[in-house]
């Protein structure tokens, strides 16, 4: 079988318990740069989104600094996320079982894993987060440039800027919601966070949540040996 769900660096270490390498050091650094940027962008963006959150500008050294720094963090995020995209896009391609998984979202939320199809390195929820983030970041960087008045004011009309600022706000709210789903899922599904900190998960975690990926890894190992 084609093991295209297996990414570079994924490996099994038999033992008790089994450990599985899920993310390389590079991927983890890449992830945390992206994560930090996203959090800083959300904080600085929310400060200008609603008056009741304006106090958040204090975290960045005041309103002027918040306005100055926000777009630059956006540029960092864009390039950092591009790195993640290149690493992860293949394993996030939509497969037949993803539709089934998504249709049984109720079973996912109520913890009936036994009723779900076996999934590869990413389940449909994770894939939705990945593609949602990818699309929203594109929308945000594009609309962001239109309203980055310090350098790009001359390249668009005021009407275009009005549309851009509305799109930017809606996309930002949406990406924050996607982020909440992403973070909550990592907290709720125990054993997940170590994948992005130490790079490893336990075999049991992989068996429970990404069995197809685990089987592919075992299969690949058998083929190699």
């Amino acid at each position: 079988m084609t093991a295209y769900d297996v990414e570079r660096g994924d490996a099994i270490h038999p033992g008790k318990p089994v450990t599985v390498d899920r993310y390389t050091g590079g991927a983890r650094i890449n992830h945390w740069i992206t994560a930090t940027s996203l959090v800083l962008l959300a904080l600085s963006g929310l400060a200008l989104f609603h008056p009741s959150l304006f106090f958040l500008t204090g975290l960045f050294g005041g309103g002027q600094w918040t306005r100055t720094i926000h777009p630059w963090i956006g540029v960092v995020l864009f390039f950092s996320f591009t790195g993640l995209f290149i690493r992860f896009w293949r394993a996030n391609l939509w497969k037949a079982e993803d539709g089934t998984w998504l249709a049984r979202l109720k079973d996912v939320l109520t913890g009936h894993e036994e009723r779900l199809p076996e999934v590869g390195k990413y389940n449909a929820g994770q894939k939705a987060v990945f593609w949602g983030m990818s699309l929203l970041i594109l929308i945000l960087i594009a609309s962001g440039f239109v309203i980055w008045d310090q350098y790009f004011a001359a390249y668009s009309t005021i009407d275009q800027k009005r549309i851009a600022v509305l799109i930017h706000a809606i996309a930002a709210v949406t990406i924050i919601c996607v982020w909440i789903v992403h973070v909550y899922a990592a907290i709720w599904v125990r054993g997940t966070i170590s994948a992005m900190t130490r790079g490893r998960v336990t075999g049991g975690w992989a068996w429970r949540h990404h069995r197809k990926w685990l089987r592919e890894l075992v299969g690949g190992k058998e083929r190699r040996s």
């Binding site: 038999p14 089994v18 909440i180 709720w188 336990t202 049991g204």
Partner: peptide, 30 residues
Amino acid sequence: AAFGFLHYLISGPNKVSEEDEKKAEQLTGS
């Protein structure tokens, strides 16, 4: 955020069981 909070309160964490670990050990020949 509220949905996440409520969901956690009601359903608790999704934990990996001993059995899951055993299955993984069987699969990998450990």
